[in-house]
């Protein structure tokens, strides 16, 4: 790991085990370290409080608590958190709403490794 750049902690939220593993495996941003993954909104909020991540990838359609509500909770807990919504683009209105509640960007499922890393780079921007 590069000592000059501070490591950013990342959390993956998705109800699909396959997608969670896929994101973890595919992300190749050096300064991102995956600190945990959750399969629903409730779990995500709990894990967020424990691990205090800087970056979150968020699915929208999940059991227990959906992504939109989860986004809102996480932003309330930590306004500086960067949230990338990773979801199938069934409904643009839902995606826009997630952004409205404080998510920073959107990545459409299915995605390639390149798209995922491109979106994460874009998300981190100046940080």
């Amino acid at each position: 790991m590069d000592g000059r750049v501070a490591t950013l902690k990342m959390m993956i939220v998705d109800d699909s085990n396959i997608i969670r593993r896929r994101i973890e495996r595919s992300q190749q941003i050096d300064r991102l370290e995956v600190v945990g993954s959750a399969s629903n909104g409730v779990e995500a909020v709990e894990l967020f409080k424990r691990t205090d991540p800087d970056v979150v990838t968020m699915d929208l359609t999940m059991p227990e608590m959906d992504g939109i509500e989860c986004v809102e909770r996480l932003v309330a807990l930590k306004p500086s958190v960067l949230i990338l919504v990773v979801s199938a683009l069934a409904d643009k209105a839902t995606a826009v709403e997630a952004i409205e509640r404080g998510a920073n960007g959107f990545l459409c499922k299915p995605f390639t490794d390149r798209q995922l890393n491109g979106a994460l780079e874009e998300l981190l921007g100046g940080r």
């Binding site: 683009l89 643009k92 404080g102 920073n104 960007g105 959107f106 874009e122 998300l123 921007g125």
Partner: peptide, 29 residues
């Protein structure tokens, strides 16, 4: 009506610095 509603929301979130311009192009209604 629904598209209009989403479009207005979309245009508004673009004013927020939180929103990454290039990461929301795909959800432009």
């Amino acid at each position: 009506e629904k598209t209009l509603d989403t479009a207005m929301k979309f245009a508004r979130v673009l004013w927020s610095e939180r929103t990454k311009e290039n990461l929301v192009k795909s959800i432009n209604p």
